[in-house]
Computed example of a mutant assay.
Amino acid sequence: MKLSDRLQTIADLIEQGETVADVGTDHGFLPIYLWESKKSPRVILADISKGSLQKARDNVYRQDYSPEVLKEHFDFRLGDGIQVLADGEVDTVVLAGMGGLLMCDILAQDMEKTRSVKTFIFQPRNNPGKLRWWLLHNGFVIKEEKLVREGRYICEIICAQVSVDSGGADKQPRNGEGQLDSLSDDQRLEAKKEAEHIKYEISESILMTNGSLAREFAEKKLKKEKDILIQMKKAAIINQERLIQTEERVNYLENLLKNAKDRGI
């Protein structure tokens, strides 16, 4: 099974011999590759869509595996997120191609189950910053981050694990915005602002470990923020708070790129 660069990058982050659940599997190519390459002895293909799961099943059956292989190594499950899994059933869960806020909600739905998984690999389609914020405020450590080009997009892939000292993390899970349900309105607003800080969208570590692609990624973000700033300054009515926030985003990205250049990146 030949994978796209995006899926290959995800596959490369999975350790040899780990059992894997591909949640939101869609076509099922990643689990097929993981078993065929002998990287994973058992794979679970899960999707909330009956049609998508059937598509994955059809692709697996097209490989002409023996009935014994299908029974022992492939498992198809229809359901919502990681609710289809038993606690600690797999080593790694892959969540790819869905929104970052949806990923947070999937994890927050059952934190005991979430914390029973050794490794999560995320490839968010949007809101990666809010996903990072949620992870860091719910007892996770981000082990590795990769950038990969897919068509005209640069995709972000995040590998995270539950911290060994996550006992100090919030016992009550935060929702997709990263806010505790018990917070006051002011605290919710403050949490929302913090989750939207650009340092969660692109960190120095991403720039230091992803070479020229990371510079391109940061430069595109900087151009977008500068364009927004120009349009804001031309507006008849200027929202000063948003203007200051955008200026801070521009300054952050400029400093990030300067520091990377100073380090020869």
Rank of each mutant, 00 (worst) to 15 (best):
F122Q: 03
F122G: 01
F122A: 04
F122V: 06
F122P: 00
F122C: 05
F122D: 02
Q123D: 05
Q123K: 04
Q123M: 06
P124E: 10
P124A: 12
P124T: 11
P124Q: 10
P124V: 11
R125S: 14
R125D: 13
R125K: 14
R125M: 15
N126T: 08
N126Q: 09
N127H: 04
N127M: 02
N127L: 01
P128F: 04
P128Y: 06
P128L: 14
P128A: 09
P128R: 01
P128T: 10
G129N: 02
G129M: 03
K130R: 15
K130I: 15
L131D: 04
L131A: 05
L131R: 01
L131T: 02
L131F: 06
R132S: 04
W133K: 10
W134D: 02
W134M: 03
W134C: 03
W134H: 06
L135K: 01
L136N: 01
L136C: 08
H137W: 15
H137T: 11
H137I: 07
N138C: 10
G139N: 08
G139Y: 04
G139W: 01
V141N: 10
V141A: 14
V141T: 12
V141L: 09
I142L: 05
I142Q: 01
K143T: 15
K143H: 15
E144I: 00
E144T: 01
E144C: 00
E145V: 03
K146Y: 01
L147A: 04
L147N: 00
L147P: 00
L147Q: 03
L147H: 02
V148S: 13
V148Q: 09
V148H: 09
V148E: 06
V148N: 06
R149M: 10
R149F: 05
R149P: 04
R149T: 13
R149N: 09
R149H: 06
R149G: 09
E150I: 09
E150F: 07
E150D: 14
E150Y: 08
G151L: 15
G151T: 11
R152S: 15
R152L: 11
Y153F: 15
Y153A: 10
Y153H: 14
Y153D: 14
Y153R: 10
I154E: 02
C155P: 00
C155Y: 10
E156W: 01
E156Q: 12
E156A: 04
I157F: 11
I157K: 07
I157H: 05
I157R: 07
I158G: 02
I158L: 04
I158S: 03
C159V: 00
C159R: 07
A160N: 04
A160V: 04
V162E: 05
V162R: 02
V162W: 03
S163C: 11
S163Q: 08
V164P: 08
D165K: 12
D165H: 11
D165I: 10
D165E: 05
S166G: 05
S166T: 13
S166Q: 10
G167A: 11
G167P: 00
G167E: 11
G167N: 04
G168Y: 15
G168N: 12
G168D: 12
G168Q: 12
G168C: 13
A169D: 06
A169E: 02
A169Q: 03
D170Q: 14
D170F: 14
D170R: 14
K171L: 07
Q172S: 14
Q172A: 12
P173G: 06
P173H: 10
R174D: 02
R174E: 07
N175E: 14
N175D: 15
